[in-house]
């Protein structure tokens, strides 16, 4: 699997996508913005471009011809996606910490970039992966419908979460009000988010592999 990851990093993924988290992450410096949009850029731009790159370069046939198992092919691809997602979130978190310090008195209408918010971002990417990866591996070729499905679900989640954050007093209080200073509460939400992210990725991997085993490579 290690060789396949290296193959993706050296050949498959444009180096620009590793710079992207630093550029997109800087949007966290916009005070009081809808920060959900920052990780969403990964779903909107990186994934469709990456996968159309694989398709243009005939990556599927290229990889299948080599002595690798289908299991490792799925595992390596998921690993690369998760690696990029973690880069996006962790770098955005760092920018978020800077934002909280340089604008201490901003009145947040949308979610403020506290730890709990990042927990929600992990859930959002978990939803993206659990839809995109199994849908894509149904053909290992058509990434368009998979991306549409996954992006829609992700945005619906972000929309509802943000709407609740504004309309619902409890949610608003947990993320932006008194709960924001409760480190235990914030860390717990983050941890739950990470656990959901891991669980959904395991499910995505299992479903994808099951489907990919049936795929005929043409």
């Amino acid at each position: 699997m290690y060789n396949l990851v290296i193959k993706d990093l050296k050949l498959g993924v444009n180096p620009m996508f590793f710079v992207f988290p630093f550029l997109i992450g800087a949007l966290m410096l916009v005070p009081g913005w809808i920060y959900f949009i920052v990780p969403l850029y990964f779903c909107w731009i990186t994934i469709p471009n990456m996968f159309s790159g694989y398709r243009t370069q005939n990556d599927l046939i290229f990889t299948t011809m080599m002595p690798v198992t289908r299991k490792d092919m799925v595992k390596a691809r998921l690993f690369v996606i998760v690696l990029l997602e973690l880069m996006h979130i962790v770098i955005a978190m760092i920018y978020g910490m800077i934002t909280l310090r340089i604008y201490p008195n901003v009145n947040y209408y949308f979610f403020a970039p506290h730890m709990g918010f990042w927990g929600l971002c992990f859930v959002m990417l978990a939803i993206f992966n659990v839809i995109f990866i199994p849908m894509f591996y149904k053909t290992a070729y058509k990434h368009g419908p998979a991306a549409w499905g996954a992006i829609t679900a992700t945005m619906v989640f972000a929309g509802i979460a943000q709407w609740l954050g504004i309309q619902n007093d409890f949610v608003s209080d947990v993320f932006n009000g008194s709960g924001a200073d409760n480190n235990v509460l914030q860390a717990s939400i983050l941890i739950v988010g990470i656990v959901i992210f891991i669980a959904f990725n395991v499910v995505a991997y299992k479903m994808a592999l099951k489907r990919f085993r049936q795929v005929e490579i043409k």
Binding site: I6, L11, Q57, D59, I61, F62
Partner: peptide
Amino acid sequence: YAFGDIDFYTRSKMKTLTDVIKKF
């Protein structure tokens, strides 16, 4: 193998491609 009509990673240098392939 060689597939006459399918090419892979055409924008990469042979050297880069070989370095990746040989590991397998």
